[in-house]
Design a protein around this nucleic acid. Structure first.
Lengths: 300, 300
DNA sequence: GTCGGGCTTAAGCTGTGCTTCATGCTCGAC
DNA sequence: GTCGAGCATGAAGCACAGCTTAAGCCCGAC
């Protein structure tokens, strides 16, 4: 394989018509250019230039090399340009993942804002549960994942990743109207103590990592929950609650999926989902830009 | 523009999946490869690899660069290969020029032999007078020219070119039967002294640099020729001689174009055209091969 | 002839980029 | 848990590619 450096200076020589002119173009001395060309001719074991009094002309082999050199030079320039486009967000790709309720409530606005700022970046979004996101980020399958972890609760495994706090999503308990635990609390602002739900039947949303969370929460209050139903769909949870099957945990982000007749109460002690954006430590420009958008909307 | 060297080692890294493996492929140490990649990332101001525990994976920008690097590497390899083909005469081009009579008598055999030896080389042949060939060779318009110069006579201007002697083409004088200068010479083997043509009318072939030659020849014999006609076509010269318009100089190579009724005699003192092959001092492989063919046929 | 433009060569120096060595990290085995 | 293998990275040092300077040569112009 030919030395690309020499090939490119040879191209400059042929384009300039003389070694001296090429040297001026390249910022070298004529001697340097002459030596490069000589080295290339040694490398190919073929004369590439016919030396004239007024400059040089390529031989057939030389003309052949120049054609290839043109392609090489073009690719090198295009490569630099496209990478610059990528960092300037004039092009590129951003692969997002999010759990369902954030996908429905948080992301549409953020994505809209991102597209206004960087219309040329191609976006993709898929639903993915928080537990699978770290590995997929590390594998390069994803650029940014919206995940959550319960507070209090075990921190998710984000080794080698960067977690950006977005906001805390308060968790409510959803009850049918007239549920005994509601007692005399008549106003929606009232909180409900976890211990008052000791005898409740629980409907658990299986899709949102609430599994251990529900058990842990009740354990803190000194009992083991009676789990009557596992669902992975908030509308269904809503229907079950409305029909009096049981009570359920519903974070703020999912509240809009609950029916009107469901009663929602904050929990005491407070339970929240900590919503975070997970990225690689060296985010791509597009990823960093999306982090900016998410942070700015958190502030707003 | 990116440094092609670094780009190619980066390509090797991505293909190998790890810097260490790429280093082994390239014959470097892992450290060297790591530094090259770091330099490329500095150059592009963009992370190009995500570092894994078990190797590396390209980022979007990195994958983009690898695509371009593949093209670059391919072109470099193809360039080297095609130049090798050229020097091995598995491809290439040979642009020949020749004056008319050599084109008809000498070259067909040589070209046939050349094509047998190197069937892949594309040949072209055009008619060109000896005086225009040197410049066209120097300009790179031609690779090899068959030329001639009269002996005795001024050597053609071949500065900076290489002349390969092929053979001497003896010059005859063509006369109509019964021309007075024939006198009592009855056999074709007889020579005719130039001085005996003092009173002849001359038909001059304008195409073959005979212009000054005819005048010089006669001057050596002490007279100025009476030039009755200028032609650039041997058959026409033949017809003119046959009809008794005058006499003409006809080299051996053109004898076959003369009519049967023309009488031919060698000249005394002897006059020849020196047939030469003119090339650049550093001939291309195809040119050198054709010189070989021409020399071998001269020997035969 | 002299002059100037252009290519080449020799000699010498500089900087890129290599090696070696050491460190830190992750993962898997034990 | 500790250890070791494999990988990436950094500092230090060294070598060579490739640059510069300087001189020479060739050719064409004047």
């Amino acid at each position: 394989m030919l030395d690309p450096r020499r090939l490119l200076t040879f191209r400059a020589v042929v384009r300039a018509g003389s070694m001296t002119a090429a040297a001026a173009d390249l910022g070298y001395t004529p001697s340097a250019v002459s030596q490069q060309v000589a080295a290339l001719e040694r490398e190919t074991a073929t004369p590439l230039l016919v030396r004239h009094a007024r400059g040089v002309l390529p031989t057939e082999a030389g003309a052949l090399l120049v054609e290839h050199a043109d392609v090489v030079a073009g690719r090198l320039a295009r490569a630099a340009e496209e990478v610059a486009d990528l960092t300037a967000l004039r092009t590129g790709r951003l692969r997002l993942a999010s759990f369902a309720s954030a996908g429905a409530r948080l992301l549409p606005g953020a994505i809209g804002e991102f597209r206004r700022r960087h219309p040329a970046v191609r976006l993709s979004l898929e639903l993915a549960e928080p537990d699978e996101c770290p590995d997929r980020l590390r594998d390069g399958d994803l650029d940014l994942a919206i995940t959550f972890g319960y507070v209090p609760g075990p921190a998710p495994d984000t080794d080698g990743l960067t977690a950006t706090f977005l906001f805390d999503d308060a968790v409510n308990v959803a009850l049918p109207a007239g549920h005994p635990a509601l007692g005399d609390t008549l106003t929606a602002a009232d909180e409900l103590d976890v211990s008052t739900l000791r005898d409740a039947a629980w409907i658990r949303d299986a899709g949102s990592l609430c599994r251990e969370q529900l058990v842990d929460m009740c354990a803190s209050a000194g009992y083991t929950p009676n789990i009557a139903f596992d669902s992975d769909d908030f509308p269904m949870v809503s229907g079950l609650v409305e029909s009096g099957v049981g009570v359920a945990l519903v974070p703020d982000l999912a509240v809009h999926q609950m029916g009107r007749r469901v009663v929602l109460r904050r929990l005491r002690p407070r339970v929240v989902r900590r919503i975070e954006a997970l990225t690689l430590p060296n985010p791509t420009p597009a990823t960093a830009a999306m982090l900016d958008v998410l942070r700015s909307r958190r502030a707003a």
